[in-house]
Design a protein around this nucleic acid. Structure first.
Lengths: 250, 250
DNA sequence: TCAATTTTTATACGACTCGTCATTTTTTGA
DNA sequence: TCAAAAAATGACGAGTCGTATAAAAATTGA
């Protein structure tokens, strides 16, 4: 007895197809301009069929976001198990975030859409729960790095607890990526490499928190090089493949 | 000869009325749900008249954003002239940002809407120019604090230039406020006072950058108290008034 | 094999929105 | 007062979402 019948497999495949088409159209035109009729046409199914899979446009969006966050969680887990100091793990986590977004920068828009205009109030309860769960997992993954560093004494316990530190780092990463996605001319301002800027600033913050050992620019450069060209390459390749294979082409 | 004729004054007043009505409806329902028919009805004018003032919905949004940023610039200038150390000025700048948003938290949504869905590509060129100019002014205001601190030796010149430091701080403030505006349960996570968390983290970052004198939690508390209950009170009152007086009631 | 039943797909439709433009109303100036 | 100019109006076309009904296809059972 197969785990899924032929019919069920077909339905699941269609679901993936719709998501993939939706993702592409969303990237091209934005959420507001995304039309369900267009998705139907492009996927070569009727609108009624689409609405059997997603009871509203917002539901489609949140499912795309969940996919998106699964990718982030995947590479975040890789970062959290980096074989090095706790400090290196935290930097790896930030870099993971950077690299993940670099795979498909337009995904960032999805995460913005989903948080405005009452989108979350329209989606299915189960989808919202899954979304929140993904969020919580990523947060706790990051928090565990801080907590471990405190437990082993690398990071002295100060004013802020692990959750607060996560909030701060997350703010900086997320805000930094949003600002880059906006059309504000950062380069003209004098910010030539925003990702590297955030890493340096994060290192400064960790120094300020008295996280030992302190950082040097040379060490940071070496770590970044290693992470970007070696440690994460396989995970990134999987991520890229995962992105496209949701269509289950071929 | 009056600077403006009666007619011109009437038109300007109507313009303000439309913006005010638009702002309220935007706050209530979000940008996508904001209907120009509704604005027309609420303002007791016809839609055609509205469209004489704003050639599209997006144009209305960006004008609201410009108003919004004028408020931020106003209180930011107050922060940048805080009579204290450069370091205190920078903290004042962050607090100004916090207090400004506290006056009308829903304004943050506007600043998000305007940066997605190709809104900026639909607005009048002059509006976009004004928007960018406001942005640039706020950025350079913040950059000047960093630059002054470097010039006088309080902040050693390191890896990052003033613009890059602004980018980092701005990322943290903006990202932090967005995360708060989302419905993610920060309090449950363990972040009881996000604003204070960011200030502490900013202080840690400045410590890490070797900005002298170093901070202590007690000094920070005292500074915050002074800023929130004394230094900014008048500016905030003006901001609140400005918010409502755009309608030019009475 | 073939009719009855169930499931799946397609599409016409109502309700709503944006932005336009011909028509109506108001204002201006002789 | 009254004609010309300016401004305000709202019906309209085009396009969207989500639904509900009709058509088609697949499955069943004899």
């Amino acid at each position: 007895m197969p785990a899924q019948s032929r019919k069920q497999r077909e339905i699941a495949q269609r679901h993936s197809l719709f998501l993939e088409v939706g993702r592409e159209l969303l990237h091209e035109n934005g959420f507001h301009q995304l039309s369900m009729d267009q998705v139907a046409e492009q996927a070569e199914y009727s609108k009624g069929t689409i609405y059997q899979h997603f009871h509203c446009k917002e539901e489609m969006l949140i499912q795309l976001c969940i996919q998106c966050m699964q990718g982030l969680l995947f590479i975040g887990e890789k970062a959290a198990t980096y074989p090095g100091s706790h400090r290196e793990r935290l930097i790896a986590f930030q870099i993971a975030h950077e690299l993940w977004l670099a795979v498909e920068p337009r995904d960032l828009y999805m995460l913005q859409y989903v948080n405005v205009d009452g989108v979350l109030s329209k989606v299915a309860e189960s989808s919202l729960a899954e979304f929140r769960q993904m969020e919580a997992k990523i947060i706790s993954l990051c928090a565990s790095i801080f907590q471990d560093a405190m437990d082993c004494g690398d990071l002295p316990v100060g004013e802020l607890n692990a959750a607060e530190l996560v909030y701060g780092v997350w703010s900086m990463c997320y805000g930094g990526q949003l600002l880059r996605s906006y059309e504000t001319p950062l380069a003209e301002m004098g910010v030539s490499n925003p990702g590297r800027t955030l890493t340096s600033l994060l290192q400064a913050t960790l120094d300020g928190l008295r996280w030992t050992p302190a950082s040097t620019p040379e060490q940071t450069d070496a770590l970044l090089l290693h992470l970007e060209t070696e440690y994460f390459t396989e995970a990134l390749a999987q991520l890229r493949e995962g992105c496209c294979s949701t269509l289950s082409r071929g």
